[in-house]
């Protein structure tokens, strides 16, 4: 079996975790929700690598769901959860 795939998976997981630590520090809520983007790309890549390393095709479906749901939680955040300062920011928007 290809030994490169598990090594790459570990490397990407390390990347993901370092980035997550950075993202968890903030400082703004927007920085925190970059985690959604991170899982949407790095998480998907890790799942793809795992799917090929263990030859389990079902993990590809999990990767598909990952990409979709990272997008949904990102959109939910931007549209619904974080609009507190909108009122006073509206006038200096343009």
């Amino acid at each position: 079996m290809n030994t490169l795939l598990p090594i790459l998976a570990v490397f990407l997981l390390g990347n993901l975790l370092v980035a997550l630590l950075r993202v968890a520090r903030g400082p703004t809520p927007a920085d925190r929700l970059l985690a959604a983007l991170l899982f949407g790309t790095t998480g998907v890549a890790i799942l793809l690598l795992l799917a090929f390393a263990t030859a389990s095709a079902a993990l590809l479906d999990a990767a598909l769901v990952f990409a979709l749901l990272a997008a949904i939680s990102g959109a939910a955040f931007a549209q619904r959860a974080w609009r507190e300062e909108q009122a006073e920011a509206a006038h200096d928007d343009d």
Partner: peptide
């Protein structure tokens, strides 16, 4: 894994954010 991503993270996450 699929169910966890869909329900645990996706739906519950979106609902909690809302």
């Amino acid at each position: 894994a699929l169910a966890e991503a869909a329900i645990g993270a996706g739906l519950t996450g979106a609902l909690l954010l809302d």
